[in-house]
């Protein structure tokens, strides 16, 4: 376990943070339902896959400075089905890292799959705090 803070200077395009596996279990479904209402049927809400993307992004890159800003987001859903109870594997990587006008911009790529099916590709654009 490396406890060194993930500062902007350590990010490089192409860098991988490996995978984070997140089960779409009853606890997460209940958490989703508390905010957005209960899912209909056994299909996982698309937003639950997005919530998992954020969890993977948070868990994969630790420790991190406080005060990072999530500035922009791209998503591309494949349309493949994902069921409640399945495990989703998220691949986390760095797409870009550049300083512009005194701010540290980092683009993170997240790819989600379940059972070998591609579900989602996301790009998180963050202003990194330190």
């Amino acid at each position: 376990m490396n406890d060194e803070m993930w500062t902007f200077a350590r990010f490089e395009p192409g860098q991988s943070f490996g995978t984070v596996t997140i089960p779409l279990d009853a606890e997460r479904v209940a958490g989703w339902a508390a905010i957005y209402g209960a899912p209909q049927g056994d299909a996982a809400p698309d937003g639950l896959i997005v919530a998992g993307m954020m969890e993977a992004y948070i868990r994969a890159i630790q420790p991190r400075p406080k005060g990072n800003v999530h500035a922009a987001q791209k998503l591309a859903f494949s349309g493949a089905a994902c069921r409640i109870g399945e495990e989703v594997v998220y691949h986390v990587s760095v797409l870009s890292a550049e300083e512009k006008r005194g701010r540290n911009w980092v683009g993170f790529g997240i790819r989600a799959e379940a059972g070998g099916r591609d579900l989602l590709r996301g790009e998180i654009l963050s202003i990194w705090a330190a």
């Binding site: 997005v50 987001q73 591309a76 859903f77 349309g79």
Partner: peptide, 27 residues
């Protein structure tokens, strides 16, 4: 959380019987 708003949008689209294929947004 920013993605709380994003997921509200994703859910609104789903409740209308559609899904997001691609999305590009700024907070």
């Amino acid at each position: 959380h920013g993605t709380m708003a994003l997921n509200l949008l994703v859910e609104a689209v789903a409740r209308a019987g559609f899904r997001i294929a691609e999305l590009d947004i700024r907070f």
